[in-house]
Design a protein around this nucleic acid. Structure first.
Lengths: 296, 296
DNA sequence: AAGAAATTATACAATTCCGTTTAGATGGGC
DNA sequence: GCCCATCTAAACGGAATTGTATAATTTCTT
């Protein structure tokens, strides 16, 4: 029984093998060589006392035990990355890397000008933009600052409420010229509708809240909000998008503005410890200001 | 500018130097040698690009930048330790180490028989008992299972409410025989009272809730609940302790049972991911059962 | 005031670790 | 059915890391 705990480097190698699926792949990812990776895995297996992978010629397969350890290795990687970001931004100046998490639509349609102005002001600031509808774990520091459409529930977070983002049914003027505008929700069935592919809990809640909208059939289904918005702009049909975004394009018309109105509360969220970190503070404040302008 | 991120081992060395305060101390703690530690720190300073410590002959002093990185290094250590615990308990059997956090009183007076029975049942189970009135961060895995007297607010936790623990004023029969029992709260001023040294927010809230108790003077002040309980048992005077604990000793009498009654809600808390880990599940269930018996 | 006991810094030897190379095996593509 | 690509495993030489020993400096104690 080896009483000494494994070297932390081994965890990094372990995670790389898990993610790459082979010793050789991990070696490429870490800029090491395959024998080194093999030795690391051997050493880690020696230390924990059981097999982590079943070797085969087309790669390694993780054992159940290895999968049980994976979340810990991922947490280590997230923390190490956060440490590097923190180190890169030491000092009073706004410099270094800030990791921002937001939804696809916000990230593609709303954030770019805000971030551009921010970068103009702080040339040494670098931004990592994580676009995902999953909410990143801020406590584990998967991201530094996040734009959230659901109320933050965790402790130890700095939260600033922005306001409500209004959603609405929209279509391109060209589409409405050809097919006419529906006069009520019931008439939507005769139109080309754009919607989601897989139903998430949030979407299911939304559909049930709009009367008569529960069982419409979508002619174009995509889980990508970006693709939906692009389809609306291309005149495919009627879909849901943010009213504020649609208003920027005079050719996008809101459909049934009274019948369908949905509001999303919006927050900017940051880990409490980053409050005094200049670069994170700057990004946080810029997002608050920029998104408030977008909501109004 | 070195683009490659530092080796994770350097973080461990870094944390050890922060905690030990010297290269030599860190070398002892990690079972390495002082030149090795010095090289690690040099390498890390090289990687981050600024000084982490100011060298002196009586040790190293951390720079502000180093202190800013400390929480990240601590999180790494906590996660690495959790990974080792997880690895030690692989398999279906209840074996390995579980880290339990509780208050001093609970840990010293209530948990021992519960844990003893648990150990009797699972001889391969090992327990790390962290006794502190600070609440350990379960998300960072400073502990696996915790007994909490404040309502858990974090997400991603498995929470089981136990009930309310009653507190009351108590004294040893010997003390009351000599000095008599006070008939009302006002009469407490003439007695030897046992209480806290520094006022924490929780204590301040408690004092304000008991009328006439806000400005009593304590003859013996200690931040250690254990010491307070020991003083009560030794007949020093009147102090606060759990009614359930006092009842086990026929010589401990409750004072002013009607006027002073305070209740603490109690929960057992565990990280969600540990729900399916046999050893943590076993400890969690045993604590729930054992503490419910204590409350009743 | 002087010596003992810390500490960091430096030089050198030994060990460990890593990379290169090779062999062996498996799966996919023509 | 054969060949090529990809993988793991093993052997060996070199490089990097580590440990040992020592010097130099400061602080605390006697």
């Amino acid at each position: 029984m080896s009483s000494s705990e494994p070297a932390w480097d081994l965890y990094r190698t372990f995670l790389a093998v898990l993610e790459e699926g082979s010793l050789s792949g991990a070696a490429r990812a870490l800029a090491l060589t395959q024998p080194t990776i093999a030795r690391h895995i051997d050493a880690l297996e020696q230390a924990v006392g059981f097999a982590l992978f079943t070797r085969s010629q087309r790669g390694l397969e993780a054992t159940e035990a290895a999968l049980a350890l994976k979340p810990y290795a991922e947490a280590l990687a997230a923390t190490a990355a956060a440490l590097v970001r923190e180190a890169s931004g030491q000092g009073e100046a706004v410099r270094g890397t800030v990791r921002v998490s937001a939804s696809q639509i916000i990230g593609a349609e709303v954030l770019p000008p805000i971030l551009a102005a921010l970068r103009e002001r702080y040339p040494q600031l670098e931004i990592e933009l994580v676009l995902s509808n999953e909410i990143e774990n801020l406590l584990r520091r998967d991201a530094d600052v996040a734009v959230r459409m659901v109320q933050p529930m965790q402790e130890a977070l700095v939260v600033q409420r922005i306001g409500t983002v209004a959603l609405g049914l929209h279509a391109h003027r060209r589409y409405l010229d050809r097919h006419g505008a529906p006069q009520d929700i019931a008439a939507l069935g005769a139109h080309s509708l754009i919607g989601y592919d897989r139903e998430t809990p949030a979407i299911r809640a939304m559909r049930s809240r709009i009367p008569g909208f529960a069982d419409v059939h979508f002619a174009l289904r995509s889980d990508s909000d970006i693709a939906q918005l692009a389809a609306i702009r291309a005149g495919f049909g009627i879909g849901i998008c943010q009213v504020a975004i649609a208003k920027r394009d005079p050719d996008l018309m809101q459909v049934l503005p009274g019948a369908f109105d949905l509001k999303l509360d919006t927050w900017i969220v940051m880990h409490e410890n980053l409050r005094t970190t200049p670069r994170c503070r700057a990004v946080f404040d810029a997002l608050v200001q920029g998104l408030k302008a977008h909501v109004d």
